[in-house]
Amino acid sequence: MEQNDNNIDQYRRRFLERSTAVLAGGVLAPGVFLHAIAQARPVDEAVSGKVRWGMLIDSNKCKTGCDKCVKACETENGLNRTGNPLTDAQWIRKVSLKDKQTGRTASLPLLCQHCAEPPCVDVCPTGASFKRADGIVLVDKHICIGCRYCMMACPYKARSFVHEDVTDQKSYAPRGKGTVESCTFCVHRVDKGESPACVSACEEKAMVFGDMNDPQSELSQLLREVQSTEIRGDLALNLGVRYQGI
């Protein structure tokens, strides 16, 4: 196996080296120059902790009754509705809020908050629930035994259990009966340098996605400027998703 590990996609690596070398204007060892192009990480390079993907959601811009982000998520990830809302998966949902004291209302999309200290990862007995180096919290369905303890532990009810057989899945979003799943930040898109489907679908531009660790990213600049909060910030989980206007 060792040998195979080493020559994985050699031709691709060579191609990348050559083409990036042209861009970089010189031949550099792989791994040194690749970070320069932050978004377009090469397909054969592992994710690193230098990046932390995150999101800022402005509930002031989010329209009540609009669920374009929810629909986009369902289409992108192939979350077919079976007609039973209690058992259907919902990776992102629209929540309406009304302040009990003041009567002020707000509307916002709630998705996996991609905590830096995720309770779902802590409680998972097999390690199926895990956090990628770049902060994206995922379920490795290959080793998920379907115990649902992560669903008990999540403060945001962000996780769903697949209650029925699934067929015709998207090749980039495998999902099947008996495992737990949740928002992946559209990891397959992020790995290509694109934004999650919900962010792209939001016409109000209420959702901004980016690298929280890159001070130059649009997200980081916004986060420095505007006042934003974490949902259940009292739990001190250091969330990847922050909100404005609540």
Partner: peptide, 10 residues
Amino acid sequence: IFPGYEVSST
């Protein structure tokens, strides 16, 4: 999830 708020969703 949102202390102090009335909440509704799908």
